[in-house]
């Protein structure tokens, strides 16, 4: 049975089509990353799965139940970490968990859940209104984990978390998957998804532009990489040598630096020996695997601007994360 299945799922707001004819199947037990830039329609899709919003056309089932007609069957079996939620500021963190336990008629121990999501007993005793964004995220995650759901739906779970928190979140997702829970989570940052997902789907402007395993996606971009070589003398003179190597698709020279685009991984070593044979002295060498990030950028129709941004993100993960925190 599919954990989630959407058929021609469409949502329009006036002129704007937020989700456009989405056909998506998430298998039981898999960890599925739902990827796309902000505004791609990820949250709208999730809102329709949870009956927060009603589709304009098409339908969705969650755990075999119709998302609209049988919503009451779905909610006790699903753990939800919504996007753009807030806590009850005057109630303690512990009271939030107790409320979740009560509504699910579960027998969970609040202490155990607090520990799983990394909230201390002192934190739990405080009013949740005093919590930071990250702590609220942890609290809501804890509420989602109550009663060991069959399916976890998490909308941007890493938002508000620091790098350490994101790692913990990823571990938690993996642990849930190991317990047999299907996990469906969205993100606009690929690296948060690729570490834990069996499959990812990329959404752009309401349309699904790719669905594949991480390996499948890597294969589709040909395991490409760029190699940067710093030479002892001007790089111009060695352009032809590098171009002559099989598996090299493009070479550019700038000062003493030679930049090679590589399609076949084996070409990397060949370039080095070829340049050495040609009498060049290699001072330094750097290899960048073409990341899924750039594929993501291509799929989501980024163009130069976003490409530059994604390069920044690769160069400065902290900046990327602080952006995620917003």
């Amino acid at each position: 049975m599919a954990a989630i299945e959407t058929t021609g799922l469409t949502k329009t707001y006036g002129e704007l089509t937020a989700v456009d004819d989405l056909d998506l199947t998430i298998e039981d037990g898999e960890v599925f990353g739902f990827l796309g830039p902000n505004g791609a329609g990820k949250s709208t899709t999730i809102n329709m799965l949870l009956d927060f919003a009603r589709p304009t056309s098409g339908s969705a089932t969650v755990l075999g139940y119709d998302a609209q007609d049988d919503a009451d069957e779905i909610s006790p079996r699903v753990g939800v970490l919504p996007e753009g939620f807030d806590v009850y500021p005057r109630l303690s963190g512990r009271r939030h968990l107790e409320f979740a336990i009560e509504t699910k008629a579960a027998t969970d121990d609040p202490e155990a859940i607090l520990e799983r999501v990394g909230l201390s007993a002192e934190d739990a005793a405080r009013p949740a209104g005093d919590y930071s964004k990250g702590m609220r995220q942890r609290l809501a995650t804890g509420m989602a984990l109550v009663d060991d759901p069959d399916l976890l739906i998490m909308d941007e779970p890493s938002s508000g978390l620091d790098p350490h928190g994101i790692r913990e979140m990823q571990e938690l997702v993996r642990a849930e998957a190991d317990r047999g829970t299907t996990v469906f989570f969205s993100s606009h940052i690929l690296e948060h998804v690729e570490a834990v997902c069996d499959r990812i789907g990329v959404l752009n402007e309401g349309r699904l532009v790719a669905v594949d395993t991480i390996d499948g996606l890597r294969e589709s971009i040909g395991g490409g990489a760029t190699m940067e070589l710093v030479l002892a003398d001007a790089a111009d003179g060695h352009l032809e040598t590098a171009r002559g190597v099989a598996g090299v698709t493009d070479v550019a020279a700038a000062g003493q630096t030679l930049e090679c685009s590589i399609a076949d991984p084996a070409a990397k070593a060949t370039i080095v020996t070829a340049l050495d044979d040609a009498g060049a002295t290699i001072r330094d060498l750097q290899i960048d695997d073409v990341s899924l990030e750039s594929l993501f950028t291509t799929l989501t129709n980024g163009g130069g601007e976003i490409e530059g941004q994604s390069a920044d993100e690769t160069a400065n993960p902290a900046a990327a994360k602080s952006e995620a925190a917003e």
Partner: peptide, 14 residues
């Protein structure tokens, strides 16, 4: 408006 209703409706209450 605050969004806490999503937390609430994500739980079994409809």
């Amino acid at each position: 408006r605050s969004g806490s209703i999503k937390l609430l409706l994500g739980l079994p209450p409809n």
